[in-house]
Design a binder for these strands. Structure first.
Lengths: 339, 339
DNA sequence: TTGAAAGCGCTAACAA
DNA sequence: TTGTTAGCGCTTTCAA
């Protein structure tokens, strides 16, 4: 004998009003006399009534869900971003439908699910949305924002950290510290962001390279993250300190590099080389690292993502927006003036 | 001129079958001839039909959503757990509805939302669910699992790491390393888990305390996380190394302690003191720390949580299950035999 | 195996 | 301000 679900009708009956009055009371939509309102609220409380959002959304043709695509949440930068995104989604009155994807296929399935849920928006922090999906989104009028990646879909908005500005800051900082043998450390299978950072870094030191006042090389780590940094440091410095100014695609790689250089050869930053990361994850500020880095403003990124979502919800055919979020140099020990 | 949504009826019309046939095809429910099935699938593809999960769920009186309550996702351990939970939820065929809560009030609102979404289950990793909520869940037959915390609600299942076993492992390890001046480092506003760990640690060394072969003290950090560890190390070791065997409530605190002791007094682990953490977050394995720790099996925790959810979905009135997940000692540099 | 029909619980246009 | 009513798109008996 299962208890029947409590519906708006039950509340209406108890309160002696119509179902519509109950609906109005709970969605603060349309006018309802204060007295009626109170009766409804009271009856609802007595019965333990809970609006059925499924029915509500079905009727409104839209759920108050926002789909959020992510991957390897455990990554410090991603988890930081994720936290802000979820909070912003909630603050905007939505609920976060979060999925972890590992492949393009995963992504496609996920996006399909999102459409099936009639989400109010989609935020993608990993993978490239297929063109087909974008078309569907246009048809369903679902706004889509990608974060820190590029897209060739003109109806998809972009929020990204200003990689160029960040790389320039890094370059300036290393040059100001009198570094002469510069390098950019990236992972073999790099992403859109890290490629952009490397390119901008080279551009920023191009003159000095031409002048022959500094040298430059790319360092490619075979493995990602901290472990990749450790390993590559051991290879690269095997025959002495080859670089005195290293810009890293991200903090984790930088921390690994620092540890690899220290544990294998007792080379240290900033005594033996200067190093700059990207992201400003919490570990960068641990005393063992004191990593100078380019800070991504995850809070601003999340805010902008939601803002764009809402804008496009209002005007679905507006042209693509690509929003560059300011980054900031965070000075710590790992860079010091050389002589 | 807005495009009309494509419904099962549209597909049925195009395929020349009934709406029911379409429904059956997409929910693999009830029998449908292969020929019909193909016609439906073809028509659906042609139209770009997507099942409306809202309507489906409304009808089934249950969505395939699982509500997931979390907080400060940026925390390394939490993000690790979260990743596994989301993946498990997906693997079980559900979607994760994730909310960040910061207060008891947040939690209550969130849980209400979950009920309104008619979720298939709720997983709580932060905060204590109010009794009222549990009652509602029973009525709505929504299974609830809490992770690494306690509850007095008998219809709520619990999955937790075996804190006692972990603390015992830590105690044994420190005693075996010949540590004599033991301490348990915790944060002032501690959680269920950290209290349990401390209590079990004391119990494990009780005999030795009575024998007077070892001493024991509690260290209380005023601030949480890494920063709390740094600060407390600076206070505690101001007049020399007071403890030679420290068990920490979590890894972050331990890493902070290591750095605080080193940067302020150049005291090092394991030369000057042994230290053991809890969780085994990635940083614990960074070369700068080499932290011996008690590993929580986040993957197993997530798996069990989902398993319990599904069990209770089948048998909603079964008695409470409290599942202890095995922990494991991970030996690294931070403990070494003393003389 | 298939179709007709009765909901699932809600919202919103309209009329009163 | 209120109630009536016609759906929202799907599932699922029941009968054919």
């Amino acid at each position: 004998m299962k208890a029947k679900n409590i519906t708006a009708q039950d509340v209406a009956d108890l309160a002696g009003v119509s179902r519509a009055a109950v609906s109005r009371t709970f969605s603060n939509n349309g006018s309802v006399a204060e007295a009626t309102r109170q009766k409804v609220l009271e009856a609802a409380k007595k019965l333990g009534y809970q609006v059925n959002i499924l029915a509500q959304s079905l009727n409104r043709q839209r759920s108050d869900l926002v789909g959020l695509v992510t991957t390897t949440t455990r990554d410090p930068f991603r988890s930081l971003l994720l936290e802000h995104l979820i909070k912003q989604i909630q603050q905007a009155g939505f609920q976060a439908l979060v999925t972890e994807v590992e492949s393009a296929e995963d992504l496609e399935q996920t996006l399909q699910k999102f459409i099936q849920f009639r989400v109010s928006g989609v935020i993608i922090t990993s993978g490239r949305p297929p063109a087909e999906f974008a078309k569907e989104c246009v048809r369903c009028e679902i706004p889509v924002v990608v974060i820190n990646r590029e897209t060739d879909l003109s109806n998809v908005d972009v929020v990204k950290s200003d990689n160029s500005a960040g790389a320039e800051l890094a370059a300036k900082t290393l040059l100001a510290a009198n570094c002469k043998r510069l390098a950019y450390l990236n992972v073999r299978n790099d992403t859109y962001s890290s490629t952009a950072r490397g390119a901008a870094f080279i551009k920023a030191i191009a003159e000095d390279i031409v002048d022959n006042t500094v040298s430059f090389e790319q360092i490619v780590a075979e493995y990602p993250r901290y472990e990749g940094g450790v390993k590559v440091a051991r290879q690269v410095f095997e025959n002495g300190v080859k670089y005195d100014g290293i810009f890293c695609a991200n903090d984790l790689l930088a921390c690994g590099f620092i540890d690899g250089a220290r544990s294998a050869f007792n080379y240290r930053a900033p005594d033996d080389f200067c190093i700059i990361g990207f992201d400003d994850i919490p570990v960068a500020n641990f005393e063992s690292y004191g990593l100078t880095t380019i800070r991504q403003d995850t809070s601003a990124i999340a805010k902008q993502a939601l803002a764009l979502l809402r804008q496009r919800a209002v005007q679905s055919d507006r042209s693509q927006v690509i929003q560059n979020i300011n980054v900031e140099l965070v000075k710590r020990r790992s860079v010091a003036k050389r002589n």
